[in-house]
Design a protein around this nucleic acid. Sequence first.
DNA 1: GTTCTTGTTGCTCATCCGACTCCCACGTCC
DNA 2: GGACGTGGGAGTCGGATGAGCAACAAGAAC
Lengths: 349, 349
Amino acid sequence: MSNKNIGIKDVAVAAGVSVTTVSHVLNEVSYARISSETRDKVKTAAEELGYGPNRLAQALRTQRTGMLGLVSEEIATTPHAGRIILGADEAAKARGYNLMIINTPGSASLESRQADVQALLERRVDGILYATMYHRNVELPENLGSVPSVLVDSVAIGGNITAVVPDEDGGARAAVGALLDAGHTRIAFLNNTDDVPATRQRLQAFRAMLTEAGLDGDAAPVESEISEVQGGYEAAKRILSRDDRAHMPTALFCYNDRMAMGAYRAAAELGLSIPADLSVVGFDDQELIAANLYPGLTTVALPHYEMGAWATEHLIDAIEGKDDLSLMALHPTILGCPLVSRESVAAPR
Amino acid sequence: MSNKNIGIKDVAVAAGVSVTTVSHVLNEVSYARISSETRDKVKTAAEELGYGPNRLAQALRTQRTGMLGLVSEEIATTPHAGRIILGADEAAKARGYNLMIINTPGSASLESRQADVQALLERRVDGILYATMYHRNVELPENLGSVPSVLVDSVAIGGNITAVVPDEDGGARAAVGALLDAGHTRIAFLNNTDDVPATRQRLQAFRAMLTEAGLDGDAAPVESEISEVQGGYEAAKRILSRDDRAHMPTALFCYNDRMAMGAYRAAAELGLSIPADLSVVGFDDQELIAANLYPGLTTVALPHYEMGAWATEHLIDAIEGKDDLSLMALHPTILGCPLVSRESVAAPR
DNA sequence: GTTCTTGTTGCTCATCCGACTCCCACGTCC
DNA sequence: GGACGTGGGAGTCGGATGAGCAACAAGAAC
């Protein structure tokens, strides 16, 4: 490797001009008046030497690193984090920024989160994205406030900081709507037991949709279990095993795809065929599950990619002064959860 | 926020000493002779002001950023990338380093990869981890050579660069061994159609294990399909639907968990119960599938977390001069794939 | 007992890392 | 002698670091 540490100085020497001129040319400084001959000489020299600016020195001087910090929970255990990162990364790259990712356990203490943010601050990131692994309310480290920041998939407790979250209500309505449209009137909800916004909002939307359709939303059956495959299996089994065959639900709205996967097994064991005997819709659109179950699971997609991209886009706007985050901080921005239709919904018998 | 931009200079003024002294104290420079009184004054002042060093300035001077670049393919579409990142992140954090992650499509051109590496180089990362989403041979951007680098889950084409890969042979042997130990003598292999190391090595190990067990390894049935759920379903269906019931396999070794998931469905459709009528083992240990299928899938785990950690550990050793990568570059390091037993294997009827 | 080395201890000065940028110095041509 | 058109000098960002200086003590020389 010959190209060890080529600086602006080397380019200057090669082109026979001063470093000032090189800087002017390469940064296309507007007020610099330089002949096109000189420009060419400089550009050619830079090219030939394989010059790339030292971003550290540049950042030190300009007070801009072109880096965004991303604090993300549980990078490995949920595919959701991956999609947020992807959305953020692509949006950042498109605007010339790079990401510094810090992973943190969902259970991390406030001090530990603060240390994570501190690490980002010491590296002088231009802004910070703070992402959680599921939609919830978080207590934020206070040092977050010292640079522009945006929350992804969560809102701050008592906080006025810009945030973007999924439209739980709309998503749940789309899911239940798909079942209603297919003609179902006896629909059950397999809910989660955690006390998170999604649990409450989806339940509320579920009942509201039924009521608005002229059914008795308040009486519709709801079974809660932990939101895993096993929980879905148990909840479905309870609902589908009731004596009263005539009033048994013909459709299941599941809190997430994992629970839906459990419901599939319960249905199989009870000799119920999907979608002929039972329609199912999930939530999350986890590729691995939803697309690979048989029959394919109709579900609602969480806009993780979109939230990551939206947050990044607006964070950069704020950094560049094109946008004012404090105006948007009043209410979280809500992004849609579109229905993804596959084969698990049909008209009731 | 009062603590805007506190520099070493501010600490120096507050403590009534020079910046040199502050630097000496805070970095615990061994040759610096400073009274403990002065040390205390400096530390107290730094504490009170909430001073944190500007890592950019530090890095510019010391030529050390304490950052590692990680080029990872397809961050969002495979959980494997997440585990590599997690392993790398934890190992890095433990040694005081941070990660800069660049995501790149698996299909990216060589120039595009080169640009990714260039971005990392301009930020003066101390070393680079280059990770692929599945075990394969890659053509590397040449600028990768200008800082210490380690490949994760791949080896360089014609290249002598340190790499760490999974033990395909050992993993496949463990999988087939589990079936053999359970007493199976008629075992089939559902293989992948891609031309990657895993495809060849697992097939070879499969045949070798059978032969070593006194069976006719060369004659054992193998069906190849794309390594997805659908492919597994089709391959399993072909194998399990043959006329010759007496010679039908009693156990299936699947190229990965997704194909195993397809095999489960094929078995269900044919009225075969797992593991009573048919034993199945997979490969990958994708939590979402392996632990959630019913019955739980016995499979072999890929050491993604471990590869990420190993690579990081040795990369840092090389950066700090404790290790010489070129010595390890001769042969890729191989990490074990342990068997994860669940409930899909039993003795044949 | 005073004055000089010689040595420590304790801390500071000046410079540097690599790029950006304000301000000034030339010619030339009207 | 202004007004351009071209280009360079030197300071700056924030911290690291080798060289050097002042103060004081112990031992040596007178």
